[in-house]
Structures are given as structure tokens and as C-alpha cells.
Design a protein around this nucleic acid. Sequence first.
RNA 1: GCCGGGAUGGUGGAAUUGGUAGACACACGGGACUUAAAAUCCCGAGAAUGGUGACAUUCGUGCGGGUUCGACUCCCGCUCCCGGUACCA
Length: 821
Amino acid sequence: MSERYDAQAIEKKWQAAWEASGVDLASDDPADTREKYYCLAMFPYPSGNLHMGHVRNYCLADAVARYKRMRGFNVLHPMGWDAFGLPAENAAIQRQRPPAEWTYANIAQMRGQLKRLGLSYDWRREIATCRPEYYRWEQWLFTRLVNKGLAYQAEAEVNWCEDCHTVLANEQVVDGACWRCDTKVIRRNLKQWFIRITAYAEELLNDLDKLAGWPERVVEMQRNWIGRSTGAEVRFGVEDSDETLDIFTTRPDTLMGVTYMAVAAGHPLAQKAALNNPHLATFLHECAQVSTKEADVALMEKRGLPTGLCAIHPVTGDRIPIWVANFVLMGYGTGAVMSVPAHDERDHAFAKTYGLPIRQVIKPREGDWDVEKAAFIDAGVLVDSGEFDGLESEAAKQAITAWLEQHGKGKQRVQYRLRDWLVSRQRYWGAPIPAVHCGHCGVVMVPDEQLPVVLPEDLTPTGGASPLTTYESFVKVDCPQCGKAAKRETDTFDTFMESSWYMDRYTSPRNESVMLDAAAVQRWAPVDQYIGGVEHAVLHLLYARFYHKLMRDAGLFSSAEGGDEPFVNLLTQGMVLKDGAKMSKSKGNTVDPNALIEEFGADTARLFTLFAAPPEKDLEWHDAGVEGANRFLHRFWRLIDRLEAVETAGDDDMAVVQQLRRAVHLTIGRVTHAFEHGFAFNVAIAALMELTNTLYAFEAKGEAGAAALREGVAAVVKMLAPFVPHFAAECGERLGFGKLAVIADWPAVDEAALASDSVTLVVQIAGKKRGEITVGKDAGQEEAMAAARNEPNVARWLENSDIVKVVLVPGRLLNIVVKPK
RNA sequence: GCCGGGAUGGUGGAAUUGGUAGACACACGGGACUUAAAAUCCCGAGAAUGGUGACAUUCGUGCGGGUUCGACUCCCGCUCCCGGUACCA
């Protein structure tokens, strides 16, 4: 009889053993012939303490990594820190200490927590993105993008607080006001850095087809985000002016139905018209008081005002009033749209509100439609469209676009919803943008030999403008080109920059001479399995795909070496909830992983998070379930006690032994399936619990029974290893396995043990279950029907009916369709 | 608003992807062991009706329709909840 299962002692013991043995390290040895497997969980923001979402994410990934090692792969499973970001600045403001201090302390704290969970990382490869040896390569790549014209500066709207004199993140705008001082937020134009992701829109869209290992929903979200649409660019004239008003429309077939134009408040025409129109100027000012959040813009009341200007219709030459509308966005398309109230719902509502004319130019192919009542938005046949009358919508799109092209008033164009990536932030705790502003040379990029531009780590933000802007030793710099006194750029990069390439950097994380070592990329990339929250479905995952292609095209690796896509398979895990809401400090519904580990041990925490819900669904936290997971480990521990005490003097019923072996090998098949398809670990663990119950119920009487029992227990131990590695290792030791054997090989299914001569069929009468029969495994319809008629309940149902049809699903069911006599 | 997803017993969830709805677990109830409790082991359980009972019947996967021999699963129309919405990460 062994001692009670002592999680704390066991976990300490095995963590030390694994660290000493180096089993978790990924081998770069070219002589290592094992197939590679790159398993990556999204690295955390070092916010202070590990939360349950992290635990779930990393336990999932660790189970995959450990399983793959057991299957003989050379596994790369790294960890690091997405260390720049807003929360560090917020903490710094509150504590009046530099964000670097807080960040490094958090990293140390969280690293300890990850180690305590027994996650099998190759810690030699740890990355912190706030280190200059990491972000220098981002700066290096960025200067190349600028040279290629893939990065540029342009004006963009930001949320601005007049009082704090600073740019606000969307998160810092609460009900249209500054979160700190409650001042009404206004939109302001600033010169910003962009990366031309739209130049890659087509490839990012097309390569979605390569992502067969991604959830369909994520692919769909990216497809919609990129939002490719084909339409026409149309050039309207402006009355009494040389200017033109360019718009894009996906419905050139409705061109003859335009009754007004709508431009954004920030559009030059609107600004110009407001100069001698105080009423309009007031309206434009009001429009600037909505945050830049898309949801805010979309939900606000649709309002507008005429500019007094008129556009000239490119075909008819008609005068068309130009309105300013608050729902037209400057940063999207050309900042202007043509409005066809008869055939667009939003235009229709706007026209109704302001009494604008509604002109029908498309009719349904059959029947009539009253456009005064509602917009007709489907395709149809053109009417009141002059020479285009009678054309179908599709043909009309072609014809009208062709006409515009012939007359130099437009052309066919592909438009993306995707906008260029705004990468500059007016913040301190981020990677410096490697540019210098020179009075003589203009904007000059920092040359390679002066990289990295190191961020001073000892500043403390106050909540106003970034402390970098007033930090002389940072700002004052000689122009790299002419040598005269110049000013350093004080904007920093969006933190998505760092998280967009870390997956590739992990392949050669310590390389000081290149951003990526092509040989290392070839060895490890792309990531075979990426795991992280659904909330990253679009932004992070799109930027990372983009960045991978940028690095490829910068010549750091070829398609053949690193692939065109960074992540082959993606698992998007659900959130951890409590009382129906996402766990968060502000809601006060967090569960501290540390307390859990101290009370029950890391293995219990691991087992519960994997068992409580399927990985891709949200996990509702209940403390009670944790005890259940712990109880299972204790129960299995006692099963080994029972195995050790088994007596083998008697004789076993071989049929029963065979049945046990069948259960064991069915379970091996089910658990293996979970690892190979979809990672439904909750079901895999349930299967292991079920088998444990079966093993408990089995009583070995002789050698054969004892052997089958031992085989079953050993199989469960091995299959538990990816989930509860310390526990499994200790059980393995009790069973006499070699020191590292438990984490070294995966049990195989013995096909012979699965064989069975008979099957149980459900018998249905007209689709309702009325009984069960046991027949030979190859039984045909006649044999099954004969057996069914022998079932009293089935026979009773057949008594007063005629059989209309019989459906036999082999191995599953027999459905007898009847009608009353 | 737009894009994506979800809803199954008291609870978390399962259902081989159109074939026995509720595996496994939690909570609960009963029994065994114990002086007692804890722990452990065994058993029970969707709801309703009938039957002493084995059992049988009806209803049942958010709501309303449809397809099918058969629907949690597919189609059409809704409701509510969650994620994203470009400066949270």
C-alpha cells in the first residue's frame, strides 16, 4: 500500500527532474532526425498575475506539445512576453514609477507561476518584446518598408482630450469623454505612420484558401474584414469649380438614381463650404465630437446638412446637392458617397428624414415596387436610365462603367474594406519609431548602424503627453543625413507590431546579426499549431499573417523555407467566465490560479480546465468541479494500490478479460482521436474516467486478468501524461516504468482487441425506439428483422400494422416504417 | 449598426457529424463501512402519466415553421446572450 497522493511533493520532484534532463528543449541539432513540431500559445501581456484564461490557454498547448513529444516529434514550445502596452503606462501613472519596473516585476512573477504549472517550455528561447535586442529588428524592417514605399506618413483622426493634451485610446474614451478628467473627447487630425497592408489585401484574401487548418469562422471573419468589393470609381463635377468629387460605388447600375451626394465632415468640400456658413461650421464641430470607434459611429443618429454646393452628374449633367453626413467616414474610401435612396436602405432613411427626392431606376424583374415605402435593394431591370433602360443590373454595371471609362469620368475598381495599418502611437511605453525630423532633410530614417533606437526605461508618464516628447537626451539628435541638429520621432509603434512576428523570431531568438535566421526558419516554421483566444480572430491574426509575408518579401526567408503563412493550424479557445461574465479585475469575479495550485496542485488545475468545457467554447467556472478533478486523481491513485494487491491464484473468465481489453483499446482510440482531430480534451478525459470506472469494476482472478488490468492502468497513465504530467510520471514510477518513459511514448491500439462478433442494434418503429436486439456483426436485414420480431415490445407494435419500409443502418439501428392496417 | 459565434437535465457538458438525446463530471438522494463524522466504495435520477413491480406510454435539445423513414444536427423566419468592430491585448 502506497502513501496518499501528495501533489505538492510530486510536482516539485518531477519539475526538477525534467529541468535537469532537458526533455522540454527543442533541438536545433541537424543530426536530430525526428520530425519537427512547432506548438505555440499566444504569449501573454504581463499584467501582474496569471489569470484563468492564461491557464486554460497554456494547459491546452502544453497537452498538445507533450502528446507530440510522446509521438516522437522534436517539439518547439516556447514562451515569452508581449511586454509593451497601455496597462503598464496606466499602472505607472497610478504608482508614479516607471512602467519598465512594473513590467519586469510582472514578468518575473508570471514566469514563476507558469513554471509552477509544469508547462513544458523551452525557456532558453524566452522573449520579452520590450527589450531592444527584440524591437531593434522591427525598427530595422520598418526602415526597409519606408524605402519600399510600404510605410508612409499621412493625416488621420484620433481621439483627443483638450484637458490632458493627449491622444486617447478607444478604451480610454468612456461615453464620449476622457476616462481621467471626463472632458468631452474631440476628433483631431494628426500626422501618423502607416504600413500599406492594402498592398497585400489580395494575397491576404487569396491565401485564406490555404488555411484549411483554421476554424471556418475565423477565415470568414478575416474575409469580411478585408472585404473585397468590385465596383466603379465615379468622378462627379462640382458646380462653379475646377474640383471634382470622386466616389466609389458597388452599384454603378443605380447611377441614374442619384439624388444627392454625402460627404464626411472632414471632407475638403465640407470644410470649404463651412467657411462662410456658421450653421454648417457648428454642425461639423458637432460631428467631430463622436469618438472614432466604428460602433459609436454606426449607432449614432444619422444626421446631415446641405453644404449649398452642387455636384454635376457625370452622365446627365444634372445638378445634385452635396450634403454633409455624420455617417460618412473620412478615413474610409474617398470620404464621399453617391446617394441613391430608391435602392439603398440608409440613403432611403436619410432622404425620408430630410425630404430629399427618391428616384427609382431599378424595377424588380416581376411585379412592382413602391420605392416611397422602402428601398429596392435587389438586382433588377433598369428604368428611367436613358440609353441603359431595359438592361439587367449586372449588364448595366458593365455598360455604365464602360460608358464612364470612355468619357473619362470613371473606371472599374476593386475596393477593400481593409484600411492601411496605423502603426504610430503617441505613447511612451512602446518601441521607438526609427525616424528623425530634420529641418533641412525632412523625415530621415535612422540608418542600420545607429539601430536600435533605445527607449529610455526610467521615465514615468503622468497622463499627459508622452514623457519622451520632453526628454531632451532622447529628442535631441544629429540628422543622420546632414549632421545638423534635428529632432527624434517620439511616437512609438503599435504593440501589434511586436506580436506580429514573435512566432518567427522564436526559431532563432538570440540571433544578434539578423532579424530571422533563414536556416532556423526553415527548420521550424510555420507554426504547426497556434492556440489562443477568439478575440484575436481578426487584428492580431491578420497582422501576423501580413508581417510574415513582409519578412518573406524583405528576403529574410523564401516561401520554400518559411511558407507563405505563419500558422498552419489554429485553435481559438473560448473565454473563462464566472457568473456569466468574462473574468476580470473590474468585475471582481476572478479566480486566482495560485490559490488553486496551492490547495490542489498544478495537475488538478490543469485537469479541471481541460475537462470543464470543449476548448473552443467559453468555460463557466465552478469551484465544485475542481474538487471533482482532484477526486479523480486520488481515485486513480488508489486503483494502482488495488493493482499492486491483486492475487492471481484463480482462473479468469476469458470473455470478461477480452471485454476489458476491448474497452481499454477503444479508449486508446478515442483519446488518440481527440489529439489528432480537434483537441476535444474534455471528451478524452471523460473517456479516461470512464475507463477508470471500468477498471475498478474489473476483478482479476488469475494471470490473464492481472495482465489485462495492468495493461489498462498503464495505458491510462500514459494517456494522462499530457494532461497531468507530474501525476502520470509518479504513477509510472510506481508501475516500474523507466524514469522518463511515461512522457516518452504513446500507447498503440491493438486492433485484435477491438474485434467483436456481435453488435447491438436499436429497433425503431417509425423512428421511435421500441427495443434493442443483439445480432451478428455482419447481420443483414432479414436476420435483423427476425431478431426484432422476437422482441415482445417490437412484436406488439407490428401486430396491427403493415410494414411500409425497412431501414437498416449496419451496426447502429433498424427502423421499421409502418402504417396502420 | 455591421461581421462572427452560442443556447441541450438543478449545473458544466456528451452525442462516432442525419441514426438509442443526456456519456463523463458536479450538485443532490439512498445504501455499505464507522461509536460518530470525514474520506472511500456501491446504487439512483430529464419531466409527466399508468403500474406493487420488471416495465410501458407521452412530452422533451431557446421560439415558430419546413425537409426526411429518422433532426440537437439540414433549410426558412425570429428571440436572447457573447466576441470583434481598426489606439485594450
